[in-house]
Amino acid sequence: MVRLEHLNKTFQDNEVLKDVNLSIPRGENAVIIGQSGIGKSVLIKCMVRLLEPDAGLIEILGEEVTRLEEEKLNALRKKIGFLFQGNALYDSMSVRENLEFPLVRNNMAGTKKDLEHKVLEALDNVGLRKTIDMMPSELSGGMKKRIGLARTLILKPEIILYDEPTTGLDPITSKEISNLIISLQQQYHTTSIIITHDISCVEITANKIHVLKDGILYASGRYEEMKQSNDPWIYNFFN
């Protein structure tokens, strides 16, 4: 479903991704972990061409992302949801308008009644129907994250990329968001790629963990395997 081969990305003299190879099958919750600034966010931004990789192959849902024209790229992007680290809610729009925006822009709004139904359904999924007419500035960090998640899910994507979904949240809200990711994944049968360095989020969400270190995929495995790893760096990271 997602295949990366020999992916390379450099910023000026800083070679962030050196030779990344990764394969994620349909339905898997893959977590990519690594230290801050190692290039995890760069990796998923390359997957949706928010950043252009210098070299390598990115194949998602059978399409070679780096070779797609704008129209085909936008069609593919509809099938990929992206939850941004800072939520990226449009702060000049209400919660309702934030959720309507992707539907209207992609001609998926239907009638006015359909649009209302889709927005309310998305809000119910994250338990925040009451916020529909609020502005993003009136929401707490956890609520913003949930609304961001609702907006990501509203186009019913096949793959969701999560960029640090629990960053800046207290442990209880962080656990709630991690559980929400799992329940929504089960409800919509999506494939998830989660970028994080929050070990509790990893424990709750991961089917498989990929460790990014020094620009390469350093190790892969299940949570229990990582926790009992013989590699001192991995052992220290997970314990």
Binding site: K45, V48, L50, E70, N74, A75, R77, K78, I80, F82, F84, Q85, G86, A88, L89, Y90, D91, F101, P102, R105, N106, L155
Partner: peptide
């Protein structure tokens, strides 16, 4: 919008 990734969010939701 750029700093808070709203422009990126717009781009990945299929809006130029």
């Amino acid at each position: 919008m750029k700093v808070t990734e709203q422009i990126d969010a717009m781009e990945v939701s299929g809006t130029n």
